[in-house]
Design a binder for these strands. Structure first.
Lengths: 152, 152
DNA sequence: TATTGTTATACTCTATAACTATA
DNA sequence: TATAGTTATAGAGTATAACAATA
């Protein structure tokens, strides 16, 4: 169980080190959710629709940082898998509203649980101070990203 | 500049919240590096070869958590872009060693700088305690992932 | 004329299965 | 027979350009 006791201050973590850490997390998280065989992109769209309700396709594309054609195709795949459905936007004949189905909601819930579990497995191997640091750091970074994107 | 002063303890960050934060970071980091037009997968391979030197194709696939055919194609694309080259493995006629070219090293360096800069932009918007938390949390998580993968 | 969405086209990324060559 | 790598095939994810329909 060779537990490595970390020196939390001495090993000055450079931005380069930090970015390598982020990339490791990317790969780890990506591999952790398997239900429904969805990609992270599909999973993110499903999760957003579940949290925020029906959404215009264009808004969805912008919110996810994707192109409109990309979102069209992604929604088509999700629709084919009965995870979302398209409905007409009564207030604008051009628009399409995308909403999650009950199946989609359930798949989304399960995937989020899987990812959360994978992260939990990591976190519980950390020391207590490190765990606290994680609880502060991740939400703070998420908030900084949101601020940054709303300002631009 | 509406600076939000966070309560660092009251808003109990659940694993679900944390995973949402991680996903935001994934998308943010992914969009931050543009030099060479490489994907994260390609970038990761290039970075690894730069850090660790020439590597067998199979080892590269295993290290990156990819299939062998996937790695074959990725290396082929990187080779076409003159970022890596294949050489024979003298000790094993079946094997192929992949190594980064000078061009590849330079592109890799620049991309890492771009990502680091993007992360730095986020971090400098955080409060001092939050910054400290990031410096502790990200390396700790990376270490936990490594431990987890070497144990399985 | 501008906006919303889709289609067309072309890459990258990914996996599994089948194959070749070497150990 | 087992291992290293490639080829074949297929599908997801992405982008830009061209298009249709509506505002």
């Amino acid at each position: 169980m060779h537990k490595r006791v970390m020196d939390l201050s001495a090993s000055e973590a450079s931005p380069e080190d930090l970015i390598v850490a982020v990339e490791k997390m990317v790969r780890y998280v990506r591999q952790s959710a398997v239900t429904g065989g969805l990609s992270m992109a599909a999973s993110a769209v499903l999760g957003r629709l579940g949290r925020e309700g029906p959404c215009r396709l264009t808004d969805l594309a912008r919110a996810e940082g994707a192109s409109q054609p990309n979102m069209t195709q992604l929604v088509t795949r999700l629709e084919r898998a009965d995870l979302v459905r398209r409905t007409a936007d009564r207030s604008d004949g051009r628009g399409v509203l995308v909403e999650v189905t009950d199946t989609g909601r359930e798949v989304s819930r399960q995937r989020r649980a899987e990812r959360a579990q994978a992260l939990h497995l990591l976190i519980e191997e950390l020391t207590e101070p490190e765990q606290q640091a994680v609880k502060v750091a991740l939400p703070a970074l998420a908030r900084a990203i949101e601020d940054r994107q709303s300002h631009s």
